[in-house]
Simulated assay, not measured.
Amino acid sequence: MKKSVLVVEDHSSQRKMMVDALQRAGYIIYQAADVQQAISLLNQHKPDVVVADMHLPSGDGTEVIREARKVAGAPIAIVAVSIDLAILNQNTISVNQADAYLSKPFHPRELLKLVEELVGVSL
């Protein structure tokens, strides 16, 4: 069964890069540009992985992470993304309950490697 990823990123060029790379690798993709869209998609689709930017215009990625942790069923793996190294260095993994993090800018291969590790399969 194909694995699914929710990409939460307000910058359309960054979102497109992530979505294109993940789709080419065979993942089902859901995408959101803000916190409200992300929460709606989380509850509708229950993705296997959430890739969430920590800086969003309608709130921040920590809200998305908190909501993802509340979704019933199989646990959702979380990748926190930020250009702000201070955010990622402030124990993002433990404080925000993310499973992994990426610092912008990053190469799509880095994202694919993390997602593959988190879902435990290579598509």
Rank of each mutant, 00 (worst) to 15 (best):
V95I: 14
L114I: 13
A32H: 06
L6E: 05
V7R: 00
L111T: 01
H55E: 15
E116P: 05
R69L: 07
V7H: 04
R15V: 08
A33C: 06
E117L: 06
E116A: 10
M18T: 02
P47G: 07
R24A: 14
D10Y: 05
V5C: 04
D99C: 00
S40E: 15
Q23S: 15
E110W: 13
K104P: 10
Y101F: 15
M1Y: 15
S40P: 10
E67H: 09
S40L: 09
L102C: 03
A52C: 14
E9K: 00
Y27P: 04
V7Q: 01
D53A: 00
T62A: 03
A38I: 12
S82L: 07
A52Q: 03
A25T: 00
I76E: 04
V19L: 10
K104Q: 06
S40H: 13
A80Q: 02
A98G: 06
G59P: 07
T62D: 05
Y27M: 08
K70F: 12
V71E: 08
H55Y: 11
V49W: 00
V64A: 05
H45C: 12
S58Q: 11
V51C: 07
V51E: 03
Q44N: 11
K3W: 01
L111N: 04
A98P: 05
A100Y: 04
Q14F: 15
G120S: 04
A21D: 09
A86H: 15
I78T: 04
V81I: 12
E116Y: 07
L111C: 05
S122Y: 15
I83E: 14
V64W: 01
A21K: 00
G26N: 09
H45F: 14
Q97V: 12
Q36M: 13
L112M: 03
M17A: 08
V71Q: 01
A100S: 12
A86C: 10
Q90P: 11
V121C: 15
V7T: 06
S40N: 13
L118Y: 03
D10M: 02
S122F: 15
L102V: 07
A72E: 14
N96S: 11
P75I: 09
P47H: 05
I76G: 03
K70R: 11
L88A: 08
L114H: 05
